[in-house]
C-alpha cells in the first residue's frame, strides 16, 4: 500500500510550525528510517500516517484514503503505530489479552485472532510471558508487548516511534529480527530512531529531518555519508561510517564487515 504525502504543513495549536511543506512517497514493502534532532518533526510527521494529526495544509494519503476523510479507527486497519512510550498504550491484565485487543477491535474472526496473537508472541519472544501482567514486566519487555499488540493487527504499514530507546544489545537484536521478518512478509516499516547505527544496519532508505523539513532522503549509504548536512540536524554518521570517512575509504561503509573489506582493499592499494 502506497503512502503519499503532498506539501504537508502542520501547526500545533500553540503556534509552533512543526512541519513545513513535506512531500514524500513511500512504496509498498519499503523499510524506511526517519532520523533527525529532537524537535525536528519526526513524531509529528508519522502521527499524520494514522490520522492522529491532520494536515494544516497539504494532504496525506494511505493507499486511496485521504486521512482527512477517515477516522483514526478506520486508518488503524492500514497503519499500525507503536508509541515511543509503551505505557501510553498498555492497559489489560495479561500480555495475551493486550495483544488480542487490536485484532478483536478490527473485528477479525476468533480463529484468526488466535493465530495473530500466537504469531506476535513468537516474533517478539514473549511466549513465556503470555499470562503476565504487562506492568509486571521490565520496560524492555513492555516495549515488546506494545510492539506485539501492533504486529497482531496485521496492517500493511507499521510505524515504530523510537523502538530502540533504552533497549539493551539483546533487545535491539530482537528488534532487528522483527523488522527483517516484516520485510520478508512485504510490510512497509517506518521507524523513527536516534540509534544511527541501528538505522545503518537495518534500513535501505533513510529520511533525515531538520526544522520541520526533509533535509535528505535516499539510500542509507548515500545519506549517512553526508556528515555536514547530518550535523545541521544534530546527527552524527554511524560509528562505522565515521571511521571509514576518517580513514578516507573510497566508499561509504555501514557495518564492521563492510568497513574491514574496504579497509583491506585500501591497505593493498
Amino acid at each position: 500500500m502506497n503512502i503519499q504525502i503532498e506539501n504537508l504543513s502542520f501547526r500545533y495549536p500553540n503556534g509552533v510550525l512543526a512541519l513545513r511543506r513535506v512531500s514524500l512517497e513511500i512504496a509498498p514493502g519499503e523499510q524506511v528510517a526517519v532520523i533527525g534532532q529532537n524537535g525536528a518533526g519526526k513524531t509529528t510527521l508519522v502521527k499524520h500516517l494514522n490520522g492522529l494529526l491532520l494536515p494544516t495544509e497539504g494532504r496525506v494519503r494511505i493507499g486511496d484514503w485521504d486521512t482527512r476523510h477517515y477516522s483514526v479507527a478506520k486508518l488503524a486497519r492500514r497503519v499500525g503505530y507503536v508509541f515511543q512510550n509503551p505505557d501510553e498504550q498498555l492497559f489489560t491484565k495479561t500480555v495475551a489479552e493486550e495483544i488480542a485487543f487490536g485484532p478483536r477491535n478490527l473485528g477479525y474472526p476468533g480463529e484468526r485472532i488466535q493465530e495473530l496473537v500466537e504469531d506476535a508472541l513468537q516474533l517478539t519472544q514473549l511466549q513465556a510471558m503470555r499470562n503476565t501482567n504487562p506492568y509486571d514486566l521490565s520496560p524492555t519487555w513492555r516495549k515488546m508487548v506494545a510492539i506485539a499488540s501492533i504486529l497482531a493487527m496485521d496492517t500493511p504499514i507499521l510505524v515504530f516511534d523510537e523502538p530502540t530507546t533504552g533497549q539493551d544489545a539483546a533487545s535491539v537484536t530482537r528488534l532487528a529480527m522483527i523488522i527483517a521478518e516484516l520485510k520478508r512478509r512485504g510490510k512497509t516499516v517506518i521507524t523513527i530512531t536516534h540509534d544511527i547505527d541501528f538505522c545503518a544496519e537495518n534500513f535501505a532508505r533513510v529520511i533525515v529531518m531538520g526544522g520541520g523539513q526533509v533535509l535528505l532522503d535516499g539510500p542509507a549509504r548515500t545519506v549517512l555519508g553526508k556528515a555536514e548536512i547530518l550535523a545541521q540536524t544534530y546527527v552524527d554518521p554511524p560509528q562505522i561510517t565515521r571511521l571509514g570517512l576518517r580513514l578516507g575509504l573510497a566508499e561509504v561503509v555501514c557495518t564492521p564487515q563492510e568497513f574491514l573489506d574496504a579497509f583491506e582493499k585500501q591497505c593493498a592499494a
Binding site: 539493551d168 544489545a169 539483546a170 547505527d197 554511524p238 560509528q239 562505522i240 565515521r242 571511521l243 576518517r246 564492521p256 564487515q257 568497513f259 574491514l260 579497509f263 583491506e264 591497505c267
Partner: peptide
C-alpha cells in the same frame, strides 16, 4: 550480552584478518 562499542567489535573482527595489531589495546572510541 552487554553492549560493546562497534569500534571494539570491528577491531575484534579485524584481528584474525591481520587488520589490527595484536599488541595494541582494543579501541572503544573513534
Amino acid at each position: 550480552g552487554f553492549g560493546v562499542s562497534r569500534y571494539t567489535t570491528t577491531a575484534r573482527l579485524a584481528l584474525p584478518r591481520g587488520l589490527w595489531q595484536k599488541e595494541r589495546p582494543l579501541p572503544v572510541t573513534l
